[in-house]
Design a protein around this nucleic acid. Structure first.
Lengths: 242, 242, 242, 242
DNA sequence: CATGAATGAGCCTTCATTCAT
DNA sequence: TATGAATGAAGGCTCATTCAT
């Protein structure tokens, strides 16, 4: 029946509305400022209605996280499919992440809430499964690039180094960079463009792995510009180019 | 008078007791699981007594953070004074941090609480000042090593690269590593020794900077063993050596 | 819909219940004896419900004050419209106030709480506005009578005497009388009917102003009886007549 | 022994110190802002010491009240002994009170605290007795003047009017004036010099009683100036003269 | 006598969740 | 299905008072 189809659509739209509202609140007032009353008021529906979509506050936060992580995964997928050499493609991930952080500056903070045990245990199983799946999807994209690089001979890893090692280097830097820049800058970093330093460190690390072409052999800033424009239709994020 | 000296000692001991108890709670139940009632009950003193030491819950958390950060700074200082080349000394910091993380697996989680605005604004000025000072101290140790490396000719940085750039690479990896390992491991990393991967990435990054001696020129695993033993009187942390 | 109308009614009834309960508590145990827990218990609703009506303890006290002040204003309005000469009308206000004090012996004590700065600053803006408005309304009634008296030639004020001067004389006596009688009576007043003394002093003051007819020219006790009966449907308060 | 005499002196001095400190606190931060911790800190003695002087917070407040009331009684006594006619002497009390209010603007607020039952019942018997005695003393001075006035033929009261009636008119106005001026001024009173209005009303009331000489027969403003200067060594308080 | 650490009842307020309508 | 009034456990904080030293 078309009625139920319309209902279906409306339900999805309301779910979107709740998520977007909650995200805004989280950004502005932090975890402690997020509460079900305020959400209900902001979306102009009742609290009961919110609970029809999300079984608990924790469930809502998990949904929020998954929602953003899916957007991130999609960006990574696009980045990985950039038409260039493998080193360009791995850097495309870096570009994607820089853009993502700019778009969702609060994502990691929300994510870290899910690691709190008392929160985590209230997430329904189906939601938890979806969360795992989303993260896996994201990692698969990344390991795919490394595999391609090895196949293409751009990267050579010795037997004791796992496939994901270079990825882990990029990953830790990205996460750490997010954490560090979300506090007050420490004196030695004050006034510096840390995004740029991060980008350079990506290259130093990959150079250290000997992933070809090295940063001394290729103008990756040019690549970054092309990736931003072609893949994401945006200007290259501040910091990646001088 | 000896009486007041004893009082002084008892006060310090109780402060220790509160901090240790609170730390344990934070580890087990997160920020929301930490509450003044529970602490008072656990230490078998009244709530009022807790408040005589810390003016608010936030003040207590800040004190907790400073307490651990001071231990970390002290470890960094010791590491930096290791009698070896500059590259060994910078890796000594990595060793120190690995040991620190093993000893205080919850530190960064606590630290991130202080970045929440609603928390931060309740920290008394004197405590806040101490917190800043502790962080600065720590960074000074690190920049000192880079300066020494440049002076000794072990490291050459071009004009566009700030002094702290290689540090930032290590720093982001350390922080990111902590964040990542505090959640469930993702599939590609499952079963791997991520400490070891981290340690290798430190070396790859420094190799990428051309910081001499390169990891291909020196057996840093040996250095790590010596550092652990000589500086910290411990076995080298799991992961740094194969 | 009739459902929501009933809800509306119930809500108002509960608000009444809370106010009346709180008033009783304030009377019996003072500001410090008024607490939200006790109120909730007394009305047999939960604390949360009380807070759905009044956003804070201070808000509740303000509401209490406004509630009673509105009753007072209404009594003043009725008194002022008494069909008699202007001096009778101004005394009608005195009669009204005597009845009011008998009905609400605690009102001024509550009112004085609102003057405490720490209390005042927690009153929400809308409530504060209503409070101001209520007080203004009351004063307008009073100045109206003076204006009428001057117009009718019953009262002549020289240039240096403001319109509200005789009012202020009545006002201060009323407020002072309230304050004084709420403590233990002092020796010279012991056993006396202070209401009667107050009433006489009203007349002496108005005589001092030459407000016609003077108390020597008119039997105001008779007027008081009529006012009590006709305007308020009550016996004249004890004290006004011998 | 002279030692114990010195002790005695020191004790009295400390009692003064505590009272003065407490008074200041009450003025600045109200009843809720007055607490034993803060007092002890301010006087730089320990809490235990404060409790050696006053058995409870309520006892302290009562002592505070008595202390100020004694000063007031003393001022009244001086005023009553002014060398003039009885009407001048009764107005001297008004002048005294105006000066008193200027010196101790918070006195009545403190006094009203003692009327709260839960406070009152914690006052030790000896303190309570002293409080009663102080108030009686004050009233005796006043009734003395009325008695003198009747004896001198300046005032004639009919049989139904108690001796203290005119006094009560002044008293209520004084107390009411204090209460009213301690809140925000209401619109009709805004911008007016209410002290002056009060003073005029004193005269109107006494004129209403026919207390000779009437305000039309004598320049009481001149008397007020003399009283202020001769009795209290101060300028006449603002308001009493134009 | 003086001290001040310790106490703990008491208070205000918040907010996730339920459920009758 | 939507509503939102009602709930009540939970938690942060204060402060008068006591008492061992």
């Amino acid at each position: 029946m078309s009625t139920s189809l319309r209902r279906q659509r409306e339900k999805l739209a309301r779910e979107r509305l709740i998520l977007d509202t909650a995200r805004g609140m989280l950004q502005q007032r932090g975890y402690l400022g997020l509460n079900m009353d305020r959400i209900a008021e902001a979306i102009e529906y009742s609290k009961g209605t919110v609970y029809q979509h999300f079984s608990s506050k924790e469930d809502l936060i998990a949904a929020l996280c998954i929602d953003t992580a899916q957007a991130r995964a999609e960006m990574f997928r696009k980045a990985a499919s950039f038409d260039g050499n493998t080193r360009e493609r791995v850097l495309a991930i870096g570009v994607a992440d820089a853009i993502f952080i700019r778009r969702h500056p609060d994502h990691f903070a929300v994510e870290s809430i899910l690691d709190i045990q008392s929160v985590s245990e209230k997430i329904p199983d189906d939601r938890r499964a979806k969360w795992s799946h989303t993260k896996s999807t994201m990692m698969d994209v990344l390991t795919g690039i490394v595999r391609d690089a090895i196949e293409a001979g751009d990267l050579v890893l010795d037997d004791t180094t796992p496939l994901c090692a270079p990825l882990y280097g990029l990953w830790t830097q990205s996460v750490g960079h997010y954490r560090i820049t979300s506090s007050e800058p420490l004196p030695p970093f004050e006034g510096l463009d840390m995004h740029r330093v991060l980008w350079n460190n990506y290259n130093r690390l990959l150079d250290g792995y000997g992933w070809r072409p090295l940063s001394t052999e290729h103008a990756f800033e040019e690549s970054a510009k092309r990736i931003s424009a072609e893949v994401f239709g945006e200007h290259v994020p501040k910091g990646i180019t001088a």
